[in-house]
């Protein structure tokens, strides 16, 4: 097993705030890896740092054997793509689905765009009927499917998922999670998925890292978490909280 993504002592500093304090991470090829934590834990910042959207102050990020520098080149974006949390904010309001999907192809000069777009829409279960709609003509779940299609159209090997279902209704969430699992299996993708919901992470991922205040709390396998074989109190707290409300009196 080789590492698709490895991160060493990663530091991210916004102004003077240390959002990530020396985090290590290794994601194997074809693996689905989860990052769990509450707000401010730095889990989303980690994804942003990988894609170059957050200021890296120290440490190293290696993707498919290549260590990344300050800037990301075009080739990087053909390996790594991302799906954002808010399906209402991640699609351009003035562009049709067709235009949204054409853009990555145009940027990378990929031919046979028509076929690729049709295939991408089929793959996310939308079909051609959605091709010329604008974002406001789509439901939340449909928008997220378009966002997934856009991420997949460049055929990346690593997909970063930033709370991809937290803005969706439970029933739609199930559909999108199923879709993500399906494309991962078919394309042998590596996932790095961020969520605050332990149930989603254990459902989707084989290994996970619990984060708090910009640091790793502990690294677990999904089965360790399911069997409550955790060593840190913080993780135990999260587990308890995910089981719903328990009347104390």
């Amino acid at each position: 097993m080789t590492a698709a993504l490895s991160i060493e002592r990663l530091e991210v500093v916004f102004d003077r705030f240390r959002a990530l304090k020396g985090v290590d991470l290794e994601v194997r090829e074809g693996e689905s890896y989860g990052l769990v934590g509450e707000s401010g834990s730095g889990k989303s910042t980690l994804l942003k740092a990988i894609t170059g959207l957050a200021p890296v102050a120290g440490g190293a990020i290696t993707v498919n054997g290549k260590t990344l520098g300050k800037t990301r080149d075009k080739a990087f974006y053909r390996d790594v793509q991302m799906v954002f949390q808010d399906p209402y904010g991640s699609l351009h309001p003035r562009q049709t689905v067709d235009r949204l999907l054409q853009e990555p192809l145009a940027i990378h000069g990929i031919a046979h765009g028509e076929k690729r777009i049709e295939r991408a829409l089929d793959e996310v279960g939308l079909g051609n009927g959605f091709r010329f709609r604008y974002a406001h003509q789509l439901s939340g779940g449909q928008r997220q499917r378009v966002a997934i299609a856009r991420a997949l159209i460049l055929e990346p090997s690593i997909l970063l998922l930033d709370e991809p279902t937290s803005a969706l209704d439970a029933s739609v969430q199930a559909e999108v999670l199923n879709l993500l699992e399906e494309v991962r299996r078919r394309r042998k993708l590596t996932f790095l998925m961020v969520s605050h919901d332990l149930a989603i992470i254990t459902h989707m991922c084989e290994r996970l890292m619990v984060m708090q205040n910009g640091e790793a709390v502990e690294t677990l396998t999904a089965s360790q978490l399911i069997g409550h074989r955790v060593s840190e109190d913080y993780t135990r707290n999260l587990l308890r909280a995910s089981e719903g409300f328990v009347r104390t009196a």
Binding site: A170, S171, A174, E175, N178, E181, A199, T202, S242, E243
Partner: peptide, 22 residues
């Protein structure tokens, strides 16, 4: 029942998750 069913739960492996057929 569909709403209850479609949420992933810790310790219950269901792949794929049951979806709601409206």
């Amino acid at each position: 029942r569909g709403l209850l069913n479609c949420m992933p739960r810790i310790g219950f492996e269901r792949h794929p998750l049951p979806v709601l057929d409206r």
